[in-house]
Amino acid sequence: MVSLTFFREFTMDISANPARPSLVGRLRAAVEVKPLNLKPYEKSWLGYVYLAPGLLIYLVFIFIPILNTFRLSFHNWTGFTEPVFNGLDNYIELAGNQRFWSALFNNFFFVIFFTIIPILIGLFITSLLTRTHISGLTAYRVGLFIPQVMSTVAVGIIWRWMLNPRFGPLNVMLRSIGLEALARPWLGDFTWAPYAVGAIGAWVGYGFTMVLFVAGVQSINPELYDVARVFGANPWQEFRYVTLPGLRRQIVVAFVIRFIAAMRIFDLVYVTTEGGPGGITRVVSYELWQNAFQVNKAGYAAAMAVVLTTIILLVSFITLRIQARLAYDED
C-alpha cells in the first residue's frame, strides 16, 4: 500500500502540473536529490539502534501474536492446555456452523448502515456545499465530528437511552404525536433490533464522511466548477461530472474505513444487544470473543479471526486496486 500511495502521488503530481516536465528532466532531478540523503553521520547500525526498542515491543505484542493466531487456527486449543494440531478441523467446523454464517451475514448487513448510508449522506451534504459559500462551516464541522471522539461504549449507552422503551426520546415522541402503536423496545425487538444497531452505526459514521468529503471538495480545482457553469451544467450534472470524480479517492477511503468498522463491530453490540434478541444482531467479533474467552474454544476462535482478517484485507486491497486503476486510466 505504501508503493500504491507513492504511485498515486506520482501520478497526481503529473496531472497537477500542466507543463509536464520531460521524463529525462524528472529522472535527472530524482538522481540529483539522491546524494543529499547520504549524510556523513549516517552509520548504518544507527538506524537499527533507533528502531530497536519500539520494534521489539511491536514484534512481541502485535506481530508475533498475529502469526500465532494463524498457527493456532490449525490447533485444538482451549486457551489453557497445550495446543494440539488438528489440521483444518476448525475451518471445517466454521464452514458448517450456522451461528458463524449468520454472524457474518449480519456484518455484511451492517455495511449498509455503517458504510453505504454515511457515504450517501456525506455526498448529499457535500453537493449542497459546492455551489454556495457557507459561513460557519468550521462550527458545523466541529459539531458533526463529535461522535468520532466518543468511546463506542458511551455511544451505545447513550443510544440505549434514546431507544429506551419507556423514557427514550424516540418512543416519547411517538406517543406524543399519537403514534403509540409504533413505539417499541427497539433494541429488544425481533424485527427492529438490527436496524436500531445499524442506525447507531450510521449516526457515528456520517460525521466522518461529511468532513472527509467537504475537505476533499476544497481541493478540487474551482475552475472546473466555473467551466461547468459556463457550459450550463445543472446541479446534478455538476455533481456527477465534477464533484464525484474529484472525490473518488475520498469515497474509496471512506468505504474502506467504514467497511472495516462494519466488519469489526464489537463494543456496540456488546453494550446494546449482546447479539440478541435470539441472535439476530450477532456479529463475528462477538462470536469470536465468546468462543475464545467464555467457552474456551480459543483455537476455533483463532480460525474465525483468520477468516475475518482475510475478508478485511481482501476487500480493502481490491477496492484500493480498482481506485488506482481508475486513476491510472484517467491519466
Binding site: V2, S44, G47, F61, L288, A292, F293, A302, A305
Partner: peptide, 30 residues
C-alpha cells in the same frame, strides 16, 4: 537514516496497521 532491510521492516510495521486487533488478542491473552 539509511540502512539495510528498511523496506522489509516497513512492511512488517504496516501489517500492524492493516490487520484487525481481533487477530492479535487471542494469543496475546496467552
Amino acid at each position: 537514516l539509511k540502512f539495510r532491510g528498511k523496506a522489509l521492516i516497513n512492511i512488517m510495521i504496516l501489517v500492524g496497521l492493516m490487520v484487525p486487533f481481533e487477530a492479535v488478542i487471542i494469543p496475546l491473552w496467552g
